[in-house]
Computed example of a mutant assay.
Amino acid sequence: MTTTPRPRPEVLRYTAFSRDPDGGNPAGVVLDATGLDDAGQLAIAAELGYSETAFLTAPPEGLGGEPGRTFTARYFSPKTEVPFCGHATIATAIALASQIGPGDLLLSTRAGTVPVTVTRDASGGYLATLTSVEPEVTGIADDDLAEALAALSWPAGDLDPELPPRIAYAGARHLVLAAAGRARLADLDYDFERLAALMRRLDLVTLQLVWRESATVFHVRDPFPVGGVVEDPATGAAAAAFGAYLRTLGLVEAPVELTLHQGHDMGRPGLITVSLHSDDPFVRVSGTGVRIPDGG
């Protein structure tokens, strides 16, 4: 008896944190990954070549949420699965909204349950807001920090002393390093394998490299060698972790809205909004998105 193989699922391409298909961070979106095993999902992500591709299947029993708007979400880079990806979540939510309309969604991820709300913005496009899992901020050992700076070729004197290095988590772990000047952030030329080795050892997904323009406006960059990508153009998970970092260290006071500019140094400008509320510990990350035309 032979089994007819399932047809290859449709892979949508959306950019997140920009209304321009050439801006923000592109993500693959598979709205029905039923029947795809880990190897199949990884193969699609590797073939597509984006920093992450999201794969949706039926939700686990007992999750709750509205039927037809609740899913299991998994995220694969070209090299590995990651527990959570913010930009692919934004892209997925907007892809879903284009088919089932705006409203509330609920995603079961490896990091935990992530609610997402999609609304129409003033231009008639979609705006998606995800709510993080509970965040955590921890220190980094001096030797590990020295290794990270060596891999980046960043002298310790180029760091902003008012934004100390920390490891921040809001679904995935990121090392936050703050540059004292915009030029330091712009000059990113790192040792790919050396940094990847450190990140694997520390279970980091990206480095969140930042420069503070003002109290609530930041420019950020995210090396992602563990995913097989030199740099992530716009990183929602790291943005959520960074919001938690700022609040935990008392660098901002909730309620507050933060603006993160990312991708400008790569020629893919994107805009990420991070909101901190005073009545809960979670971080909200918002962004626009748009489908990338076939052949684009």
Rank of each mutant, 00 (worst) to 15 (best):
D121Q: 02
Y245V: 00
R194I: 02
K79C: 07
L130K: 04
S51K: 07
F17K: 01
A73H: 04
E10T: 11
T92D: 08
M1P: 13
A168Q: 00
H87P: 07
H261E: 14
G181Q: 13
D232F: 13
A168I: 00
I292A: 04
P293C: 01
V116P: 03
A168F: 00
P60S: 10
P102G: 10
P83H: 05
G270K: 02
G86A: 12
L249R: 13
G270P: 02
A239H: 07
E47A: 14
D265F: 13
P255S: 10
I167C: 00
E162A: 15
G263I: 10
V285C: 13
D280E: 14
L159C: 09
L107H: 13
L209Y: 01
G124A: 09
L185P: 07
L42T: 02
G263W: 06
L258D: 04
D20V: 03
A54R: 05
G101N: 07
A168R: 02
P135W: 02
T288H: 13
L209R: 04
G228Q: 11
G125P: 03
P164C: 10
A46G: 13
D232N: 12
Y245R: 04
F17Q: 05
D142W: 01
R194G: 15
T117N: 12
L12Y: 01
E162W: 08
L36R: 08
